[in-house]
Design a binder for these strands. Sequence first.
DNA 1: TAAGTGATCTCT
DNA 2: GAGATCACTTAA
Length: 188
Amino acid sequence: MASRDVSSIILYTAAVRKALKREFYVRDGEIVARELLGKFLVRKIGTKEIAAMITEVELYEGFEDRASHGFKRTKRSEVMYGPGGHWYVYLCYGMYEMLNIVIGPEDHPAAILIRGADTYNGPGKLTRALRIDRTLNAMPASKETGLWIEDRRFAISQKDILRTPRIGIGDAGPKWTKRLHRFLLQQN
DNA sequence: TAAGTGATCTCT
DNA sequence: GAGATCACTTAA
């Protein structure tokens, strides 16, 4: 029966396409940043799902990184001090929602800014296209919240990953301003 | 290159 | 409460 075949295919893809587990995010920031490249950011709007391959991220980690909101523990940055696997969404320049995924264990302030996915270049454009805003702040990255990350097993070669200093952070101190904490997939 | 935009944080 | 700041984008 044709209909039976179709349903078995749906079950199969559902089984393969799982949201990344909490443990994925509770690791060293540079490793998580690298491994996020090539993963799929999936947004569910109504019954429709939009998936976009992550192509660019920036790492903000620890107590000494002045470019990171987590440098100071405030009401806004509190989420970064929580356990990994939650979203941190905030407004920048009065207009743009920035999407970050909190990483690391509890009380370790760290997050990764998702700057680009597929053809959405720039963190502000990305969130606008996927209708991501601050209502998702502090929510877990899981299917229940409508925004999560999946491994679709695209092979990413380490030599295709470029590293540069982060964008637009100003002076974050001698050790941190020029750190190669921006990771992006080389085009082609 | 400059300006728009508004929440957040720091300083009174 | 006031003022500076900000991990951006767009229009010139």
